Simulated assay, not measured.
Amino acid sequence: MTSQTLPTTIVLHLGAHKTASTHLQHAITAALPIDGVTFAGPQALRGVGKSLPELFGFPFDPDSATASDLPPQAALMALADGADRLVLSEETFAGKLQRGWGRIPTPLYFTAPGRVVQLARAFAEAGGPAIDLCLGIRNPTGYLGSAYSQILSGNRAVLPDKFKEHNPFTVVDWADYVQRLRACKGVRSLTVWRYEDYADLFPAICTAMVGTPDVTPLDERIQPRLSEQAVDTILLAKQWTGAAFKREAAEALPTTASNPPYDLYDAQTHTASRAFYADQCRAIAAMPDVTFLQK
């Protein structure tokens, strides 16, 4: 039976995609129960009537969604289930990884600020606290390369040059995204970390998320990138349709020492991306009211 109390802390982890979000969600889930914490990840927040917009009365697509009949306070109490700290982790809340034929949305996650404001307003109406946001970021070429691998694993086979033409690495502007999130009414704090530092910062990330570093990281890699041979095979047969073939190619030709992960970019582009990313990280670290975790 759900306890009729409101949480005093609400943490919203926005991902982003391709920043070890799934690994973090699985590790926290494996560590449960954690005293005083209710954790709701994708398994709890996806499906008809389960998403945060549906639960709190602002469904993204009212024509196909099921909005909750519960008032905001009752919905928040039910979600928190008596815990003092409610942790929500759902990267799709910020928006889609790609739109159309392999295009990364610009500006990055442009729907996220409006959605955060709507959710914060619902929490405030329920008598709950302002939101503490958490966010992982990643080197633009690494982010885009991993996104491309995921797109190929899905139902589309976009040629590499076409993907790069549509998505120059400069579209991945984390500083602009963080600045837009900072401006959201109803946000109390914002904690940011680099994907590249994820392993070293894992205890600090878990402390920001669930209030304790006592979470054990999982050994396995979640959603590994496609190998060079797998990508070549998928593109060779791009006239074939269906996810089954792509999955079989990925499983038959996994990443190994002799079959490295597919790299979408050349060394010169990686170098330019790292410089662009370093400038963004410096800008984020200098922002007031932002905690930028660093090793």
Rank of each mutant, 00 (worst) to 15 (best):
H270Q: 13
A275N: 14
C281G: 01
A272H: 13
A272V: 06
L264Q: 01
V290D: 03
A278K: 12
S258C: 12
A283Q: 09
D263P: 03
A267K: 07
S273K: 04
A285S: 11
P260C: 02
D279G: 11
M287R: 02
D289N: 09
D289Q: 14
S258G: 13
T271I: 11
A278L: 10
Y277D: 02
D263C: 14
Y265I: 04
A272F: 09
Y277P: 01
F292R: 12
T269V: 14
M287I: 03
S258M: 09
Y262Q: 00
R274T: 07
A285D: 05
V290R: 04
F276G: 08
A286W: 03
A272W: 08
P260L: 04
A285L: 05
F292K: 03
D263A: 14
H270D: 13
Q268Y: 11
L264Y: 03
A267L: 10
P288K: 11
T271D: 15
A285T: 07
C281E: 07
T269I: 08
R274N: 12
F292Y: 15
A278S: 12
P288S: 09
F292C: 11
V290T: 08
S273A: 13
C281L: 06
V290F: 06
F292W: 06
P288R: 10
F292H: 10
P260I: 03
Q268S: 13
A257R: 13
F276N: 03
Q268F: 10
Y262A: 05
H270W: 10
Y277T: 00
F276V: 05
Y265G: 05
F292E: 06
A257P: 04
V290W: 03
Y277W: 04
S273Q: 02
I284G: 01
P260F: 02
M287L: 09
P261C: 05
A286Y: 05
T271C: 09
Y277N: 04
F276Q: 01
D266Q: 11
D279E: 15
P288H: 09
H270M: 10
A267R: 15
A286E: 14
A286R: 08
D263Q: 14
S273N: 02
A257G: 15
A275I: 12
S258I: 13
R282H: 14
A257C: 11
Y262V: 09
Y277I: 01
Q268C: 11
M287K: 00
D289S: 13
H270S: 11
P261G: 01
A272S: 13
H270A: 11
N259W: 09
Q280W: 01
A278W: 04
T271Y: 10
A272L: 13
V290H: 04
C281D: 05
F292V: 05
C281N: 03
D279K: 14
A283R: 15
A278D: 15
A272G: 10
D279W: 04
A272K: 15
P261H: 06
P261M: 06
N259H: 00
Q280G: 02
R282Q: 14
Q280M: 06
Q268G: 13
H270T: 10
M287D: 02
A267T: 12
Y277H: 09
T271E: 15
T269F: 05
D263W: 09
P261A: 12
A272Y: 03
D263V: 11
Y262H: 09
F276H: 07
A286I: 04
C281A: 08
P260T: 01
H270R: 15
